[in-house]
């Protein structure tokens, strides 16, 4: 893949992360509130859906950064701190490689 499109994708991902999180929280909250009003179960559904929304936001953020969760092992890996640090390092290497030629210091 061209470096150009990698950078553009990175830009898209960076800008998407924040609003994705906000949107997931909002969806969770408003859906919960709507269902609470409908069934009169306040505040339980709001709370549940808000937590689900938060989880969704985190999942979206994780997937944006590290790629889709395809298999159950991926989830185990996703909550494994050591693996995550290794992944971050790998990503940093990738970033370094992709940014390499434009940096005057190297």
């Amino acid at each position: 893949m061209a470096k150009d499109s990698w950078n553009t994708k990175a830009l898209g991902k960076a800008l998407a992360m924040a609003t994705n999180m906000a949107a997931a929280l909002a969806v969770g909250y408003f859906l919960g509130a709507f269902l609470d009003k409908r069934f009169g179960t306040a505040p339980w559904l709001t709370l549940t859906f808000f937590l689900l929304g938060t989880a969704t936001g985190l999942k979206m953020m994780y997937e944006t950064a590290f790629g889709k969760l395809e298999k159950p092992e991926d989830v185990r890996k996703a909550v494994n701190l050591k693996d995550n640090l290794a992944k971050m390092k790998e990503l940093r290497e990738q970033l370094k490689k992709n940014q390499g030629p434009t940096d005057p210091e190297s």
């Binding site: 609003t19 906000a22 949107a23 997931a24 969770g28 689900l52 969704t56 936001g57 979206m60």
Partner: peptide, 28 residues
């Protein structure tokens, strides 16, 4: 239901959150 069935609500919420995210970002 990827990676497993318990992710169904998260995935469904994500499908709704995505257009909302697109909407809010551009409009905002």
């Amino acid at each position: 239901v990827t990676p497993f069935a318990a992710f169904l609500p998260l995935n469904l919420l994500e499908e709704v959150a995505r257009p909302l995210s697109l909407t809010l970002r551009l409009f905002g």
